[in-house]
Design a protein around this nucleic acid. Structure first.
Lengths: 342, 342
DNA sequence: TTGTATGCGTTATCAT
DNA sequence: ATGATAACGCATACAA
């Protein structure tokens, strides 16, 4: 089936190609009602579909946006296995599709910048997830298209930001545990890097401790990779060597799940022996046994918001809109925390 | 930063645009060594990046491939939350990136065909997941680009297929349970549709029963939606009303997880009271407590294979290759099945 | 209101 | 070996 072009439609309708173009692009005021009719008939007759490549060439607009996510450590797969990313992309996809956009998903290649992909495809905008070196953001800026950063504490007028109040979240989680009578509270977490989400959550943990006049005990923080696997390790360590610990705040749900597993491997039961609270509320958390008590952020909604924000920026409709959106957090009580206050 | 074109490079190198094009496209035999040198210098000097839209226009090749996955029932989000799809896409992405392709992911819109997206973007090929109405495949064929179907029992010379032996998988699972001394084995499954993967697994279940001279008992099959939620329901039903059932084969891991939850809600423990085996081996299955015994298919590898297969077809290099690839299955023993044979 | 002509960046044909 | 030029499909400035 040979591709039908605007010219074919024009010929079929007995008008010029320009008229067809007008009709397609909503400039109907430039076309009389009857020619418009003929054109529409011809279009559906021939099953005309516009060629976005051609359009992109003349408009410098591709209707394509880029989504960047981190890679796994072996640098081979994108982190799509991480439920957090798949949920958020799910949200982005939905919003983008509603607005007539497509997207290209890339796991960032070590070294190679994103500039190539962006230029090749003439991307109209991009959504960036994950934390990278300073230099990566500098490169991003050179691309010179609207971009929104998700969960980043990089503040630069070039980027729009969308995130949550991580410090407050860490505070909420810890205070909740304290409210349930716990005072020896461990922290299981990924690497605490300056200005990363993890550091903020850690800071919130410390603030809650302080507010409750509890000592912050460095030996209670288990810092490793932000992964299920390290969670297991932390859980084991706690289960074996620290019977005085009655609760742990894990800075992500995946890690919390690991902690529970590690704990149970040493015969500790959750929440009977040790309480665990997570962060994120990924889909598995309500499936796991015990169902996980956690700090919920609406992940899908975050994706939708990010897409909205980007689209607004692309249309220049965000002049008076805030450059930064903070989504609400909420604690969801399930079965992994026990009240030990008498 | 204004876009650098092939002409800019040509000017900088003091040659013609055609020469640059030759240099880029590996037709170096058409260019002398020294001009080639000049061109390369100019390219890196100017940070030249080719415009794929322009290329697509003249070549009719976009270097873009389409991935189609089903939507959730509310028709709003793509099924990316389903770990099976995210894992497989992860595999596809990796292979595609290695070969210099990008992809566009679409949740299929009810009614609207895929033809539009495909034509708009000039897709070079597509990978289709999920089961659709006959008519959808007919439409697909009109697009007339290479396509591979994942886990479909549609056999049509137009499509390449990639899948597993679902019947055998169902057989393996059931026989395994029988080998562990179980004879009252329930089946928890999604809708059994003619020629769907689920039906095949169901058939394998019946075959194993028959081979072991066990009666097939229709009241032992719980058929609903292929979801965690229905798994919970099935688990409850079994736990409450059928104490004679000692094992259940769930036709997907997500469902198996639900069954375990439902069972435990009625005070039944897995595997002490009831054994459960799943199908797929998604990532969560080794995380869940108890760790799930299941029929493993290497999901990521499936994605990689699908991409390989498609790329071969696109390059016409698959003339002598089989149109259908069946990936191996393997049983992985974890902690959700108990041996009750004496 | 309608149509003609030009250019977007690239590849390919055809001279030179 | 090299370069001028047409063509890809579309949008738009401009002329009619």
């Amino acid at each position: 089936m040979k591709r039908q072009t605007i010219k074919d439609v024009a010929k079929a309708a007995g008008v010029s190609a320009a008229a067809v173009s007008y009709a397609i692009n909503g400039k109907e005021h430039k076309v009389s009602a009857e020619t418009l009719e003929k054109i529409k008939d011809a279009m559906s007759e021939l099953n005309y579909v516009p060629n976005y490549s051609a359009r992109s060439l003349v408009n410098n607009r591709s209707n394509l946006i880029g989504i960047v996510i981190p890679q796994t450590e072996d640098m081979n797969h994108p982190l799509l296995e991480n439920p957090f990313y798949s949920e958020i992309i799910s949200g982005i996809e939905a919003e983008l599709r509603n607005r007539g956009y497509h997207f290209i998903l890339s796991g960032v290649n070590k070294g190679k910048s994103y500039l190539d992909t962006s230029m090749q495809r003439n991307l109209d905008g991009a959504i960036i997830m994950g934390i990278y070196h300073e230099s990566f953001y500098e490169e991003l800026k050179e691309i010179n298209i609207p971009m929104v950063l998700i969960d980043s504490y990089i503040h630069d007028s070039y980027f729009r930001n969308i995130g949550i109040d991580d410090e407050e979240g860490g505070f909420m989680a810890t205070r909740y545990l304290i409210g349930k009578g716990h005072s020896n509270i461990a922290l299981a977490t990924g690497m605490i890097k300056k200005d990363g989400v993890v550091e903020k959550r850690f800071l919130g943990y410390k603030r809650a401790l302080k507010e409750a006049k509890l000592f912050y005990r460095p030996e209670f923080v288990y810092e490793g990779t932000m992964s299920y696997e390290y969670g297991v390790e932390a859980g084991r360590l706690i289960g074996e060597k620290h019977p005085e610990i009655t609760a742990v705040f894990a800075t992500s749900d995946m890690m919390a799940l690991g902690v529970i597993t590690g704990l149970s491997e040493c015969g500790k039961r959750v929440p009977e022996d040790v309480s665990v609270i997570g962060f994120d509320d990924i889909a598995i958390s309500k499936i796991f046994i015990p169902k996980l008590t956690t700090i919920k952020q609406n992940i899908t909604r975050k994706g939708i918001k990010a897409a909205e924000c980007l689209l607004d920026a692309m249309n220049g409709e965000d002049a008076e809109l805030p450059k930064e959106i903070i989504l609400p957090l909420e604690i969801v009580e399930r079965n992994s925390v026990r009240d030990i206050s008498e």
